[in-house]
Design a protein around this nucleic acid. Sequence first.
DNA 1: CAGCTATTGATGACATGTCAACAAACAGAC
DNA 2: GTCTGTTTGTTGACATGTCATCAATAGCTG
Lengths: 136, 136
Amino acid sequence: MRSALLAHLARELAESCNLTQAEFEILVVVSEAPGRRIRSRDLSAALHWERSRLSHQISRMEARGAITRAACDNDARGFDVVLTPAGLRAIQTAAPLNLEAVRHCFIDVLTDEQLDTLGDIAEAITTHLESEHPCS
Amino acid sequence: MRSALLAHLARELAESCNLTQAEFEILVVVSEAPGRRIRSRDLSAALHWERSRLSHQISRMEARGAITRAACDNDARGFDVVLTPAGLRAIQTAAPLNLEAVRHCFIDVLTDEQLDTLGDIAEAITTHLESEHPCS
DNA sequence: CAGCTATTGATGACATGTCAACAAACAGAC
DNA sequence: GTCTGTTTGTTGACATGTCATCAATAGCTG
């Protein structure tokens, strides 16, 4: 169920906006950050991605023109990820469409009660996992 | 939640049995098939995998000695995937461990009521998706 | 049987993710 | 300041997944 749902959402995203799931996630976080810019380190933490994965992905997206790297103020090692106008347009187009898709395929299909229970389930499992694996 | 859970299970699988998620799935289906052999076409259908992906994966697993290709009776195009003794041992070791991990991280954490609801949720969404996307 | 179309796997190009090793910059102890 | 260990991001090798394409075979229709 889970994989079918995610595959469906990813497909819709790709078809309607020409965006990858990964690209979408990055754009969401960057666009929500103050000043529409965020340091690479914080981005990887927000996404729970490895730094290396993020580095590759940023390179690809930079090549496609959705984001750019900008010098970081107080740390010469890092840099800020900044949305280009094109990237901003992309996320502004995609976000409402994706929201609508999620609502249509997920929220609307379930009762309020089921949604509540699902929230409890997610919380229970997450808590349990964290108690077992504090590292990650 | 979902991704953390799956990542946790995959990690346990890898650590305890030296098996990939993909390898595990294949071994499960093959070991459950009559005669512990199954045709490639049917395997890809059972897993909802692309044939190409399966082809690559089978090549890799064949190289590692978990399975072999055997001629198929009534169709010279296809072949049967057969477990080697090593593959059989691997799945027989891994299956109970994985079952235990799932139980520990998932089933035991939830109430019976939550499990019931989760089943309903999965069914509702799956049904809805299929009605929208009959092709897949 | 001959000819056409569908099915089945394989393959190569490419996109993406992980891992280990690395260099540069930071930060604290001295 | 300098040493030392840590953090940050990059890189290259590799594993894996997708896509388009291909060859061989099946199977149907005349």
